[in-house]
Structure formats: structure tokens, C-alpha cells
Simulated assay, not measured.
Amino acid sequence: MSGGWNPITGRDSGSGRPAFSPYGAPQPAQGQAYIPHAGGPGYNFGTVPQYTTWPNTAYGYYPIGAAQGFPQYGMPAQGAFAGFHAPQTFAYQPNGTGNLLPRQPQPYPNIDPTMPAAQMTNTTGGTGCEPGYNYFFPAEHTKAHIFKTNTPPWQLPPTAQIPFKAAHIPCNTTMAELLKGFGCTNQTPKKNKCFEVVSGGGGKWYKGLEVNGADKDLLKKTIKDVGWDSTRTGNPNEKPVVCLWFCRD
């Protein structure tokens, strides 16, 4: 989950090393947050050979047979070009003259209001990890299927097809965080509710545990405290996946 989005440079192109590092340079992409160090007009599309003083390292050399219709280049033979190095070239800056990948205006990411916890806000004012950072995941998660329906699932007929979103939720998430993370932010706390939905077989669902924003004691508990832990895998002969339904009105 390294990389993310910020309002200045847009979507990160990858989590590779900075420019001039010998290995792992990021791949150029539209809206790239990094600038290839061996580049320029045409370089990102392979239309000219990659002259670099570090063959086979960050970007390597232009391989024979890499693109049809363009001159084919290989590594210089020993002796014939021994000691020859082409000067280092640089890519044009974003929106610079001749840049084949100009930076486009970056729209804000679409954040699902029913699951704002799917996005991580960073200090740049954007979402996702900041450039160069990775994410430290919690050690234990539970599997959850979040039903998306305006009608409580236990009131639907057995033949109803219920859309849902699947999520891994850290087991140390509190009930208060769970409600907020799935968009239950009504000004009246009691209207923010989460229900566990239990399968009765044959397409029928029943209402299980109920959590609302006014239950201060239950809001302090973690989802693991109520049995929503890593054992809820849904695998054969194991506990079923946690099924939840949220409402805020």
C-alpha cells in the first residue's frame, strides 16, 4: 500500500527509490510523481535508446527486439566502444516543453461516503500513504461483508439479491471507529447503527447483535471482543464471514 495521492503531484507512480539510485526506479505513468533520470521526449515510450552510465541497473539499456519498427540497439562490444559513455540525459519537467507525459490537473479521489475508512488521509491533504512511505498493517483482521440495501436484510424476501462490499477490518477496531469508518456520522448518535446479520439458510437473514452510537459501553469494545476476529474466514468447516448492515437515519 505504498504511495498515495496528494493535491500537488496527484497519484504517486510507485514506491521505488529516488532518482539516480541504481535499482528499483519507479515506472513512468500518467500523472507520475517521479521523473525518470534517463529520459526525455520519446524515452518513456522506447523510441530512442536509453543511454545510461549504469547499464542493466535502474533502466538498463534498450534491448534488441524490444520494439518493432525502431532501430535496434545492444550493449557496445568490448574494445570497439570501450570507455565510451554518452552524456547523462534528463527528462523534461512536468508540463515542460516536449514532455510526452505532461502532468494533467489531478481531480480529487472519489471517496465512498458509505465507507470513508477505505481512504487514509495524509498530511498533504490527500489520501493514501505519502510519497516514500509504506503502511504498517495490524496483525489480525476479520473478514466482513457489508450489505448495501436501504431495507433491513431481515425484512427482504429470501429471493432478494443483496449487493455487498467485502472488507478486511483490523480486529482492534473499536465499535465507535467501526461506525465512523462506515459513514455513520448522524448528529443524533442513536441513529448511527450497525447490525450483525446472520444467515438462516435458503436466502433468509436474521438480525443479530445491534450497536448504536448512544451505547457508550459497547462503543469502547473492539470487534474482537464480540467475536468478530480472524477465525471468521468463511472457509469450509470454519466460522462464517461477519455480515454487517449499517444505517444512519
Score class of each variant (00 low, 15 high):
Ala58Ile: 08
Ala29Lys: 06
Gln32Met: 12
Pro55Asn: 14
Tyr23Ser: 01
Ala58Pro: 03
Gly16Asn: 03
Gln27Pro: 01
Gly16Leu: 02
Ile35Glu: 08
Gln68Phe: 14
Gly31Cys: 02
Tyr61Arg: 09
Asn44Ser: 09
Gly14Met: 01
Arg17Leu: 02
Gly14Pro: 00
Tyr34Val: 13
Thr47Cys: 01
Phe70Arg: 15
Tyr62Thr: 14
Asn56Trp: 15
Pro26Met: 02
Gly40Pro: 05
Ala67Pro: 03
Gln27Asn: 13
Gly42Lys: 09
Asp12Ala: 11
Gln50Lys: 10
Pro18Glu: 05
Ser15Pro: 01
Ser15Thr: 11
Phe20Gly: 02
Pro36Tyr: 05
Tyr62Arg: 07
Gly69Arg: 15
Ala33Tyr: 03
Gly46Val: 10
Tyr61Lys: 05
Gly14Thr: 04
Thr52Cys: 03
Ile64Pro: 00
Gly65Trp: 09
Phe70Leu: 04
Tyr61Glu: 01
Pro63Phe: 12
Gly69Tyr: 15
Pro22Trp: 01
Val48Ser: 13
Pro55Tyr: 15
Ala29Ser: 11
Ala38Gln: 12
Phe45Cys: 05
Asn44Val: 13
Thr52Ala: 13
Gln30Cys: 08
Gly16Pro: 00
Arg11Asn: 06
Gln50Asn: 06
Pro22Glu: 00
Arg17Lys: 14
Pro41Trp: 12
Gly40Cys: 02
Phe20Thr: 13
Gly46Thr: 10
Tyr43Glu: 03
Thr52Leu: 03
Gly39Pro: 03
Arg11Lys: 13
Gly69Gln: 10
Tyr34Leu: 07
Gly42Arg: 04
Gly24Tyr: 11
Ile35Lys: 07
Pro71Ile: 15
Ala29Phe: 14
Pro41Gly: 08
Pro49Glu: 08
Gln30Phe: 15
Gly65Glu: 02
Gly24Met: 00
Gly46Phe: 13
Ala19Val: 14
Phe45Ser: 05
Pro63Asp: 06
Ala33Lys: 05
Gly46Gln: 07
Tyr51Ser: 06
Pro22Arg: 04
Thr47Asp: 01
Ala38Gly: 05
Gly39Trp: 14
Asn56Met: 12
Thr52Gln: 05
Gly16His: 13
Gln68Tyr: 13
Asn44Phe: 12
